[in-house]
Design a binder for these strands. Structure first.
Lengths: 230, 230
DNA sequence: AAAATACAATTTGGATGCAAACGAACGGAG
DNA sequence: CTCCGTTCGTTTGCATCCAAATTGTATTTT
């Protein structure tokens, strides 16, 4: 079917609105639907071989995520980002992730440490293969894993609501040649500090880690925009 | 409806889904629709004299807010809250509001100070009349006003996404007899500190203010639950 | 030639209809 | 009497249909 060729990551048992949501989200994050583009409901409904109803529900969810913007009686457009957005999103992420650390240190088990180390190994392998496309989501999942240790699900949820941007931006940051290895080294140290239940050390490292990531992301964003402007 | 009193002009051309959203939100926050209750689409659609389409979009938005929960093929139920929820929501609010203070102090103008003082006067009057119903939203608006001074619209947005709970909970806190006057006194001092551009002082006060509010809210919640359990 | 107005086409907003799925109730068998 | 299976009703999920609004274009008027 042509629709499955266009939208491969489709789980059959999920509601169509969820599939539409995931598909559009991915398309926006990867840039397949460029920033500023208008999403006409009828157009995308027929393109995806679904009706407008689930598509609209997907678009509202994307609005919630801040990936698209609703204009009254004019439909949705894909949001355009500025360095200001990146700055603020990293600020939020930083503040919220740091909130989870005390509980994470308190709850972490040896089994968790082992799991985290396994994730790191997988990431090491991808880093060696220079498979950045695959590395970025794993890096995001790694951070998410640590925050989830806290069990503070509302805070986790608040972080996740920024997740789309974070994924998008940390992919930018990780693509920066000189950042990848530093970041991964920091990831290893994080697990070491978790194992030692060293909260102050972890706090300091995570804060610095996100700050580095922000800087690299901003650089990547600026250079990308300069290229686009030329 | 009462919300149209605040914004009479826009109420007319607001989409029905927004009206449905506001109406349901209010009903849930006030407890008219009790926690744990199921919201059947057809039932509420006919009750509100609208079709299911805008109602569904309203329900999805409420899901985003965390006020209701979607069960697959079983519709929505109103979420039940615990002290853990209150704790986490206040933790998030605290972290995010503090993030906005440096920019708020930097941007604040004399006109802003005057406006804030006007708001405080209105609140003083309501406090004297013991009109707690009317006071709670003004108190929330006052805080919101200060955070908005920062211009950090993404952070503001993140706070606003917690807004429903915050309103609900700060209403609980403000109902506590021994809290009202303290809170209002602190509000006055906040504006004084803003006027002096005293960031450290403001930071400290806001942090303490939210902490107080959290404590009172938790007390109110516990005593309310004890009453309900009896 | 420029501006304003009217009209047409496109597109969103909302209503309704239909099918599939889930749950509850009823009935039969052990 | 209890437990399991079947059936029927309720409710969600999705599709389609109708109405209203906005934008852009064309024509007319100044």
């Amino acid at each position: 079917m042509s629709s499955s060729a266009l939208f491969p990551a489709v789980a059959q048992n999920k509601p169509i609105r969820e599939i539409a949501y995931d598909t559009l989200k991915h398309a926006i994050i990867t840039g397949d639907i460029p920033a500023g583009a208008r999403i006409v409901e009828t157009e995308y409904a027929s393109k995806m071989h679904i009706s407008r109803t689930p598509l609209r529900e997907a678009l509202r969810k994307l609005e919630r995520d801040g990936l698209v913007e609703y204009l009254v009686r004019r439909g949705v457009i894909v949001r355009v980002f500025s360095t200001e957005d990146i700055y603020q999103i990293y600020t939020i992420r930083n503040a919220l992730e740091l909130l989870t650390l005390p509980a994470a240190v308190q709850n972490v088990t040896d089994a968790d440490i082992t799991e985290l180390r396994n994730e790191l190994n997988a990431m090491d392998a991808l880093l060696k293969k220079e498979d950045i496309e695959a590395l970025a989501p794993l890096a995001r999942a790694f951070h998410s894993h640590i925050t989830r240790l806290s069990g503070l699900y509302r805070i986790i949820r608040a972080i996740d609501s920024q997740d789309e941007f974070i994924t998008r931006f940390s992919a930018m940051a990780i693509r920066q040649e000189n950042r990848r290895n530093d970041a991964q080294r920091e990831h290893h140290i994080m697990v070491d500090l978790l194992e030692k239940r060293d909260l102050p050390g972890l706090h300091k490292l995570v804060e610095a880690h996100i700050e580095h990531s922000k800087q690299k992301c901003l650089e990547a964003f600026v250079s990308q925009n300069n290229k686009a402007a030329q």
